Amino acid sequence: MEKKVQHYYRLKMKQKEMEKELTELRQEILAYCSEQGSTETEIGSYRVKLVTQNRKEYDDQKLYETLADPEVWRMVSKTDSAKVASLTKLNVISEEVISHTFAVKTVTLLQVDKK
Protein backbone atom coordinates (compact mmCIF):
# COMPACT_ATOMS: atom_id res chain seq x y z
CA MET A 1 0.00 0.00 0.00
CA GLU A 2 2.89 2.36 0.72
CA LYS A 3 4.02 2.05 -2.91
CA LYS A 4 0.55 2.96 -4.13
CA VAL A 5 0.45 6.00 -1.85
CA GLN A 6 3.93 6.97 -2.98
CA HIS A 7 2.95 6.54 -6.64
CA TYR A 8 -0.22 8.59 -6.07
CA TYR A 9 1.82 11.35 -4.45
CA ARG A 10 4.26 11.45 -7.37
CA LEU A 11 1.43 11.60 -9.89
CA LYS A 12 -0.24 14.46 -7.98
CA MET A 13 3.06 16.38 -8.03
CA LYS A 14 3.37 15.77 -11.79
CA GLN A 15 -0.21 16.93 -12.22
CA LYS A 16 0.53 20.18 -10.38
CA GLU A 17 3.62 20.76 -12.53
CA MET A 18 1.66 20.04 -15.71
CA GLU A 19 -1.18 22.37 -14.69
CA LYS A 20 1.32 25.13 -13.96
CA GLU A 21 3.02 24.60 -17.32
CA LEU A 22 -0.35 24.52 -19.12
CA THR A 23 -1.33 27.81 -17.46
CA GLU A 24 1.92 29.44 -18.55
CA LEU A 25 1.61 28.13 -22.12
CA ARG A 26 -2.03 29.24 -22.28
CA GLN A 27 -1.04 32.76 -21.20
CA GLU A 28 1.73 32.90 -23.81
CA ILE A 29 -0.59 31.69 -26.59
CA LEU A 30 -3.30 34.17 -25.55
CA ALA A 31 -0.72 36.98 -25.52
CA TYR A 32 0.52 35.97 -28.98
CA CYS A 33 -3.01 35.96 -30.39
CA SER A 34 -3.69 39.31 -28.76
CA GLU A 35 -0.53 40.80 -30.31
CA GLN A 36 -1.60 39.44 -33.70
CA GLY A 37 -5.13 40.79 -33.20
CA SER A 38 -6.49 37.40 -34.14
CA THR A 39 -9.04 35.06 -32.58
CA GLU A 40 -8.29 32.27 -35.02
CA THR A 41 -4.97 31.34 -36.59
CA GLU A 42 -2.91 28.44 -37.85
CA ILE A 43 0.50 27.80 -36.35
CA GLY A 44 2.35 24.98 -38.00
CA SER A 45 0.03 21.99 -38.12
CA TYR A 46 -2.27 23.39 -35.40
CA ARG A 47 -5.34 25.57 -35.53
CA VAL A 48 -5.67 27.94 -32.56
CA LYS A 49 -9.05 29.48 -31.81
CA LEU A 50 -10.13 31.84 -29.03
CA VAL A 51 -13.77 31.55 -27.99
CA THR A 52 -15.27 34.30 -25.82
CA GLN A 53 -18.00 33.39 -23.35
CA ASN A 54 -19.97 35.45 -20.88
CA ARG A 55 -20.58 33.88 -17.48
CA LYS A 56 -22.90 35.19 -14.81
CA GLU A 57 -21.48 35.53 -11.33
CA TYR A 58 -24.30 35.90 -8.83
CA ASP A 59 -24.21 37.95 -5.66
CA ASP A 60 -25.47 35.47 -3.03
CA GLN A 61 -26.99 38.11 -0.77
CA LYS A 62 -28.85 39.95 -3.54
CA LEU A 63 -30.15 36.68 -4.97
CA TYR A 64 -31.30 35.50 -1.54
CA GLU A 65 -33.11 38.80 -0.92
CA THR A 66 -34.77 38.56 -4.33
CA LEU A 67 -35.85 34.92 -3.95
CA ALA A 68 -37.95 35.43 -0.86
CA ASP A 69 -39.68 32.06 -1.30
CA PRO A 70 -37.68 29.67 0.94
CA GLU A 71 -38.65 26.71 -1.23
CA VAL A 72 -37.02 28.28 -4.29
CA TRP A 73 -33.97 29.35 -2.28
CA ARG A 74 -33.59 25.81 -0.95
CA MET A 75 -33.51 24.56 -4.56
CA VAL A 76 -30.69 26.97 -5.28
CA SER A 77 -29.01 26.39 -1.89
CA LYS A 78 -25.59 27.87 -2.51
CA THR A 79 -25.51 29.95 -5.66
CA ASP A 80 -24.70 27.69 -8.56
CA SER A 81 -24.91 29.43 -11.93
CA ALA A 82 -25.94 26.22 -13.71
CA LYS A 83 -28.79 25.62 -11.23
CA VAL A 84 -30.01 29.21 -11.48
CA ALA A 85 -29.85 29.01 -15.30
CA SER A 86 -31.85 25.76 -15.22
CA LEU A 87 -34.50 27.26 -12.94
CA THR A 88 -34.71 30.27 -15.27
CA LYS A 89 -35.13 28.04 -18.34
CA LEU A 90 -37.85 26.08 -16.54
CA ASN A 91 -39.61 29.37 -15.70
CA VAL A 92 -39.36 28.71 -11.95
CA ILE A 93 -37.42 31.99 -11.71
CA SER A 94 -37.95 34.96 -14.01
CA GLU A 95 -34.80 36.41 -15.60
CA GLU A 96 -36.25 39.89 -15.07
CA VAL A 97 -36.67 39.34 -11.32
CA ILE A 98 -33.01 38.34 -10.80
CA SER A 99 -31.42 40.62 -13.41
CA HIS A 100 -29.79 42.79 -10.71
CA THR A 101 -28.30 39.84 -8.79
CA PHE A 102 -25.41 38.99 -11.12
CA ALA A 103 -22.54 40.48 -13.07
CA VAL A 104 -21.55 39.15 -16.48
CA LYS A 105 -17.95 37.99 -16.66
CA THR A 106 -16.29 37.54 -20.05
CA VAL A 107 -14.05 34.48 -20.27
CA THR A 108 -11.80 33.56 -23.18
CA LEU A 109 -11.42 29.86 -23.90
CA LEU A 110 -8.45 28.50 -25.83
CA GLN A 111 -8.98 25.68 -28.29
CA VAL A 112 -6.05 23.98 -30.02
CA ASP A 113 -6.78 21.31 -32.63
CA LYS A 114 -4.50 19.35 -34.86
CA LYS A 115 -5.20 19.86 -38.59
Rank of each mutant, 00 (worst) to 15 (best):
Q36I: 09
V84C: 00
T66N: 01
S81L: 01
T101C: 02
A31D: 10
E96T: 05
S81W: 01
I43N: 08
E65Y: 09
S94Y: 01
K62Y: 02
N91K: 13
R47S: 10
K16N: 11
Y64M: 09
Q36E: 12
E96F: 03
K114L: 14
D80W: 01
E96L: 03
K56A: 02
A82Q: 11
D59V: 06
L90H: 05
T88N: 00
I43Q: 11
N91S: 11
Y32W: 15
L67S: 03
V104L: 09
Y64P: 02
V72E: 03
D60A: 04
N54A: 13
T108C: 08
E35G: 08
T52E: 15
D69Q: 05
E19A: 07
L67K: 02
V76H: 00
V97Y: 00
Q6K: 10
E19R: 06
V72C: 04
I43K: 14
A85C: 05
I98V: 08
T41G: 11
P70G: 08
L11P: 09
D69S: 06
L50E: 07
T41Y: 11
W73G: 02
Q111P: 04
V48Y: 05
E42Q: 12
L110A: 07
K4G: 07
E24Y: 08
S77E: 03
V92A: 01
L90Y: 05
V107P: 06
T23A: 13
V48T: 09
E40W: 04
T101Y: 00
E24V: 13
E35H: 09
R74V: 02
K16G: 07
V72W: 04
M18Y: 12
E2P: 08
V107A: 07
V97I: 12
C33I: 15
C33Y: 07
L25D: 07
K49I: 03
Q15K: 13
R26T: 08
W73S: 04
E35P: 04
E95H: 03
V76A: 01
I43F: 14
Y9R: 14
S94T: 00
R47T: 13
M75Y: 02
A103G: 05
K105S: 08
E71S: 15
P70N: 12
S38D: 12
V48R: 01
E57D: 07
T101W: 00
T106S: 15
Q6P: 03
S77A: 05
V51R: 08
K16H: 10
L22I: 07
H7I: 04
Y9G: 09
E71N: 12
T39Y: 14
K114G: 05
K3P: 09
K62A: 01
A85H: 02
T106L: 11
K115I: 14
V92L: 02
S38A: 10
M13S: 12
R26E: 12
E28F: 08
R55G: 13
Y58M: 02
C33A: 14
I43L: 15
D80I: 01
E96W: 02
E57R: 13
T66L: 00
